[in-house]
Write a protein that binds this DNA or RNA. Structure first.
Lengths: 342, 342
DNA sequence: TGCGGCAGCGCAAACGGTTGTGCCACTGGT
DNA sequence: ACCAGTGGCACAACCGTTTGCGCTGCCGCA
């Protein structure tokens, strides 16, 4: 009854208990002690009492007054998918040591949610937003960092893979193994990485002198998750009858589907056809044969996104120092690629 | 300049724009209109202006006054792992239609974080907590729902798989295929499901008349993620030299590792040995041979957890109506099991 | 004409902290 | 003995919404 009906002790109770004003207690606990000349002995008493009574400042009141929430919002297509979850892991790494929390929302490509969520997040007073593989339409009053979202907005920092290096890693590997007839599985049109990754492949191919046969290029179709679209794409490739000794797939899931299709056609991987994936998802190491792939350091991309956002928040400026941060892919050689048969 | 330095319009600006008091506007927007006799025409004007000026109430001020946050906290071991991410997807399904947001924290089995996070979440005024595969030590002043957390706390609602049915599905399948010598891979001691799942297996075995040979029981060891612990466990099993025709693994990851070990030993799956996994992770469908497994409906478990928590929050009582909610597993038959050779 | 009643709205005090400014007492210099 | 300077703390306004209560008219009834 004495300490009120609310949960925990408030600044009122604490200061009454100490015989001080809320002002003084607040100043001590916020370390305004230096600037505001509170007696060292008083500071000691205050801190001790706060610890003893387990005082926790009310986040609402503090946020209201200071106009800070120490919270950011993260928009992802779907949290349950490995891509987003891994990036979130990296985001969390960077945030929690700075005492920041985050809200996550999955828009599932629904347009109404894509419109509504930024506003809802803002009404929750987030201090910044990270958009993971998500387009940002509106101009927002807080800093925004995009991971793999190729937004044209010029005040949005983009964290993106160095696709040129990625393409080079895969294609040089295949070239060094002797492959000359390489087939490509492009991503679905709605996927934000499709275009930029394909552009990179074309540029690297022309640099390396690798010819791209239009007859050896297929595209993933449909929104089905997993390996099914890749399976279909590879079947179409086989149906065309053109000769090829290697496939560079858009991602690991489609590479796995392609391998299944090759097996069904009586072809052996990697003896008859080598396959290179992209992403290095968990399954890449466990499928048979294990997948040679270009690894996207998703966790690191999340970390980079979060620390960049925190920097923008601290600086108080919405305008970033640099509009884009490139992340380097690495190459994971496993057992789905081999020297081309003589 | 006119609308203030703050972000977005506030109740002040909106009411000034309308020539009304903040009181009236607030009442209309909160639908206290019926009780508080606001003219229908006025209500219309208010709502229209609010929509037009994109007014969003400040969550801090509202939370401060109403002592509600419309936010819950979710504790998981590690957000980037598929298990947690899938459960989170279900949680989100149930929360967002109720206008609730959630904070996620990953404790990574670190004891200091396990202690600190509940307090931190509370200081953010969460109205409830969902603990996913996470022990809850303290007695918290908000409702708590545990997913696969074998907590003894009696005021915590547990959402748990019906392990008895799960064991029955797998063991009846193996029995019907003719298997009599079944090996078991138990989970790591720190995993919360290990004990309860093993208990279920023992009970079902005795019901079905299946003998458990202690020499055919091994245990996962180490915190390494992925299939490595299962690989080691299966090697030990083989080293013991006892005859078996099937393995029931603790989870899909260890089943995949076990299959690799069997292959290395020159055994064919499923011709020589059948393998049943648990969970139905994404990789289960893509490994070779694809994995017969007991599917845990993780997303549904997340949904159930969230809607139960919301109910507790609404009721204002911390004490649940029922201490435990059982979720039914299903059985996914793929290609890692076959009839025992005659 | 007087008055009760109600429809329609506003006043001001919360909620729990932070912060610009002011007040008091003491100290030391001259 | 007087005043300036400073150390140590408190006053009160403020952040943006909600909410108990009260105020103003106008209408109807006697």
């Amino acid at each position: 009854m004495s300490s009120g009906a609310g949960r925990g002790v408030g600044l009122k109770e604490l200061s009454a208990h100490l015989g001080l004003s809320p002002t003084t207690v607040s100043r001590v606990l916020n370390n305004a002690g230096g600037a505001f000349r509170i007696a060292p002995e008083t500071q000691r008493r205050v801190k001790q009492a706060a610890a003893q009574l387990k005082y926790e400042p009310n986040a609402f009141a503090r946020g209201l007054r200071k106009r800070r929430s120490f919270t950011i919002g993260v928009m992802v297509p779907e949290i349950s998918e490995g891509y987003a979850a891994t990036v979130l892991g990296g985001i969390e790494d960077a945030l929690l040591q700075e005492e920041f929390f985050y809200f996550v929302v999955s828009h599932r490509h629904r347009n109404d949610l894509l419109q509504a969520y930024p506003r809802l997040l803002l009404s929750r007073s987030v201090e910044g937003i990270i958009a993971v593989d998500t387009p940002v339409h509106e101009d927002l009053p807080v800093p925004v960092v995009a991971v793999s979202g190729h937004s044209r907005k010029n005040h949005v920092v983009r964290i993106e893979l160095d696709h040129l290096t990625a393409a080079r890693l895969a294609l040089m590997h295949l070239r060094d193994l002797g492959h000359r007839h390489i087939a490509f599985i492009k991503g679905q049109t709605f996927s934000s990485d499709t275009r930029v990754r394909w552009d990179a492949i074309r540029r690297v191919c022309s640099t390396l002198g690798v010819r791209i046969d239009p007859n050896l290029v297929v595209q993933l179709e449909g929104t089905a998750p997993g390996s099914e679209p890749g399976h279909r794409a590879a079947k179409e490739l086989l149906a065309r009858g053109a000769r090829f000794t290697a496939i560079f797939a858009f991602n690991d899931a489609s590479a796995i589907g392609a391998i299944a299709a090759l097996h069904e056609a009586g072809l052996h991987v990697p003896r008859d056809v080598s396959v290179v994936g992209f992403d290095d998802i968990a399954a890449a190491a466990t499928v048979h044969p294990s997948l040679t792939t270009v690894r996207q350091p998703l966790r690191e991309m999340g970390q980079t996104a979060a620390s960049n956002l925190l920097q923008l928040i601290r600086s108080g400026k919405r305008e970033p120092a640099q509009a884009s941060v490139q992340i380097s892919p690495s190459f994971v050689r496993r057992h789905s690629t081999a020297k081309v048969a003589p």
